[in-house]
Design a binder for these strands. Structure first.
Lengths: 108, 108
DNA sequence: AGAGTATATCTGTATTTCCCGATATGTCAA
DNA sequence: TTGACATATCGGGAAATACAGATATACTCT
């Protein structure tokens, strides 16, 4: 059991993270990274994720805002992070998302 | 198909409604009304729901706040309303909640 | 070391949400 | 019709959120 939502506070933080169209949109786009982001080396996009700058260009908000939003999505276990060199790659945390869906179905 | 969440705005409104501990708590309490609320005529509680005053006493917020919160839960189809005489009874909208859970599982 | 790029963090302002008291509306009972 | 009760709506102050720009941090290349 890696996810539990034991505290209501955790669950509320997740709902808050999802209560913003930019954050929700990013989560949707990350379902098909190679389709939604124009990356040069589309090599291991699915594996490692998408870097902040690409997400920023797509969503059209400032760099600082996007960085903060991604951090929020990560704290709530909706995305995961990989640092490689000077880049930070974000991708969906399918385990965390499934855990949320399961919890909602069972306990909401 | 009574529920669809076609627009992202609808989904965001639902997440916003769930992003508050009082509203989330009310939704939980309404899973077992006869257990969580002390009503005199526990006759058709499951059928009709719980009146605003009982919910207000339990949650400990002002009457106006509780009324607004319940309206928000209703607009997002998380609870349903029945007016009987001078009372307004609220109960969980299990269909709406299940529709949300399904949508999240499928599309989030 | 120094410049350039990618990202995170800090600080501040505009907007939104939280929650209240006051007031309006609607129902019931005398 | 008057008064009591249940609920809804209105208006506002305090707190939180949404974003931005400036700056800090970290890595890369020369």
């Amino acid at each position: 059991m890696t996810e539990n939502f034991g505290d209501d506070r955790d669950l509320i933080a997740v709902f808050k993270a999802l209560s913003n169209s930019a954050r929700l949109q990013i989560l949707q786009w990350l379902k098909e990274p190679e389709k939604n982001f124009s990356m040069q080396d589309a090599a291991d996009v699915r594996e490692v994720g998408v870097c902040v700058t690409l997400i920023q260009n797509k969503v059209g908000l400032s760099q600082s805002t996007v960085s903060q939003y991604l951090a929020e999505l990560q704290k709530t276990k909706l995305v995961s992070v990989t640092r490689l060199g000077q880049w930070t790659y974000y991708k969906r945390n399918e385990k965390g998302i499934a855990a949320l869906a399961g919890h909602i179905k069972r306990n909401l």
